[in-house]
């Protein structure tokens, strides 16, 4: 069974990931387009400009990111099911396919480049994550032994 108990097992996690990514994109889009709309509006209309920019554009950013997350999760689950292994390569392979799938309408060249870029990016993420995990791992220390053994410690 999967190691991480904060996440659901495979087919269901796709839905979670899609929703999570959408929320992330929507919130990030709110911040981004709110500021942008605010700055690009004339004085007196700035609040309204920010709001309308958010209303128009934040859902779209959320949708884009959601599609990315959902697609990535689908590929991740498929790769896991096929390889029957759980390591960093799963994410790299899934990233490769996700990047490719999203760019496929731009032609073969675009697809290839975007797939490779995405795979490299995820490889870097995974590498950094693993490095952090290793650096955080602490050696086991010996417990403290009193000089006189306690009667019951045997």
């Amino acid at each position: 069974m999967s190691a991480d108990h904060t996440r659901d097992p495979c087919p269901i996690v796709i839905l979670n990931d899609f929703g999570g990514a959408f929320a992330m994109g929507a919130i990030g889009g709110c911040v981004w387009h709110g500021i942008k709309g605010f700055r690009n509006s004339p004085y007196g209309e700035r609040g309204y400009g920010a709001l309308s920019a958010i209303k128009q554009r934040a859902p779209r950013v959320g949708g884009n990111l959601g599609v990315w997350g959902g697609l990535f999760s689908i590929f991740d689950c498929s790769v896991k099911a096929i390889r029957k292994r759980e390591d960093a390569w799963n994410a790299v392979i899934a990233g490769f396919f996700t990047g490719g799938a999203l760019a496929i309408r731009g032609g073969w060249k675009h697809t290839r480049n975007s797939a490779i870029t995405c795979a490299c990016l995820l490889g870097v993420f995974e590498g950094v994550g693993m490095m952090m995990q290793r650096l955080q791992a602490q050696p086991t220390m010996a417990p403290v032994y009193p000089e006189e053994p306690q009667a019951l410690a045997a």
């Binding site: 602490q138 050696p139 220390m141 417990p143 403290v144 009193p146």
Partner: peptide, 16 residues
């Protein structure tokens, strides 16, 4: 962890 163990050692000594 070394520091934690050191403190533990100190505590044990005090206890004794």
């Amino acid at each position: 962890p070394e520091d934690i163990v050191k403190v533990q050692q100190q505590r044990a000594q005090e206890e004794i």
